[in-house]
Amino acid sequence: MTPNEKRFALIAAGILVVASVTGYVGTRIALHHGPTLDSYGNEVGGSFRLMDSTTGTMTDQTFRGRWMMVLFGATHCAEDACTPALTSMSAALDKVDPGKRKAVIIFVSLDPDRDDAERLRLYGQSISPRVVAGTAAPGPLADLAKEYHTTVEKRPDPEWTYAMQMSPRFVVMDPETRYAGTVDATLSADAMTEALKKIMAPKD
């Protein structure tokens, strides 16, 4: 290797290190930036700020104008319940929103220690383009779960040491971020479709 080639290799390596450190620090800052929650006068649900699966920050306002189906859980989900629930909701939305422009699934991971940005990206990608996954620091997550009337609960797991309990229902927020109802997360895709048709039907 010539001196110029060595110099180029060192510069390239240095750039990679700086980029990696910057990305890590940015993720940690986003993760620990505690949101100030606003219920917007809702009985259930309201504002949120999460580190999304691209290491950026997403809020409820990111999706304003679209229906949001909000589910809490983790990639290490108790009883492997999260993947079937998200898959069924995605299939249901494909029927009520075939153009894929009106609705999105917000999956909130309650396990920030294990669910980093890359893991969340791959997890959402494995289920559906509709699934947008994010997380936050433990304190803000507990506040957010309370806002959405669910809890943060760990369950012992023989394979993973522990797993996070999935919230029992999807909380449905309308395009104006108003609480519109809930859908049982254990329903079949067809049953979710019928529930969504009622919730999302135009109001007189």
Results as ranks from 00 to 15, higher is better:
Glu118Asn: 06
Met89Arg: 10
Pro168Lys: 04
Phe107Gln: 04
Thr62Gln: 10
Asp157Ser: 06
Pro138Gln: 11
Asp60Met: 03
Tyr162Ser: 03
Asp94Thr: 01
Tyr162Pro: 00
Lys95Trp: 06
Ser128Ala: 00
Ala78Asn: 12
Arg169Glu: 00
Arg169His: 07
Pro140Asp: 03
Thr150Ile: 13
Phe63Asn: 00
Arg121Val: 02
Pro84Ser: 02
Val172Arg: 07
Leu122Cys: 06
Asp111Glu: 11
Cys82Asp: 07
Lys100Gly: 15
Tyr162Lys: 00
Met173Arg: 07
Glu79His: 12
Ile127Thr: 09
Pro98Val: 01
Thr55Met: 10
Leu93Lys: 03
Leu86Met: 07
Val152Pro: 13
Thr150His: 11
Ala145Ser: 01
Ala136Arg: 06
Pro168Gln: 00
Val96Asn: 14
Arg169Met: 00
Ala136Gln: 08
Phe170Ala: 00
Leu122Asn: 08
Glu153Tyr: 12
Gly134Glu: 09
Arg155Glu: 06
Pro175Thr: 11
Arg64Thr: 15
Pro140Glu: 04
Trp160Tyr: 15
Ala163Cys: 15
Lys146Gln: 14
Ser90Trp: 02
Thr57Met: 09
Val70His: 11
Thr150Glu: 11
Val104Ile: 13
Arg66Asn: 14
Trp160Cys: 14
Phe170Tyr: 12
Leu110Lys: 04
Leu141Cys: 02
Asp113Asn: 03
Lys100Asp: 12
Ala103Glu: 06
Phe170Asp: 01
Asp113Phe: 03
Thr75Glu: 11
Thr75Asn: 12
Pro175Glu: 05
Thr55Gln: 08
Ser128Phe: 02
Met164Leu: 08
Asp115Met: 11
Ser90Gly: 06
Gln165Thr: 13
Met68Thr: 01
Val171Ser: 08
Ser126Val: 10
Ser126Leu: 08
Ser126Lys: 09
Ala92His: 08
Lys154Cys: 01
Glu79Trp: 14
Ile127Trp: 15
Val172Asp: 03
Ser109Tyr: 13
His76Lys: 09
Leu122Phe: 04
Ser167His: 05
Thr62Ala: 12
Thr150Pro: 15
Leu120Pro: 09
Glu118His: 06
Met58Trp: 08
Ser167Phe: 06
Glu147Cys: 02
Glu153Ile: 13
Gly65Met: 12
Leu71Val: 07
Met69Leu: 14
Val172Met: 07
Ala137Tyr: 13
Ser167Asn: 03
Phe72Gln: 08
Glu147Lys: 12
Met58Asp: 04
Glu118Ile: 02
Ala74Lys: 01
Arg119Asp: 10
Leu93Arg: 02
Asp113Pro: 00
Ser109Gln: 07
Pro140Cys: 10
Leu93Gln: 05
Thr151Tyr: 15
Cys82Leu: 04
Leu86Phe: 04
Arg119Glu: 12
Ala133Trp: 13
Cys77Glu: 05
Lys146Tyr: 14
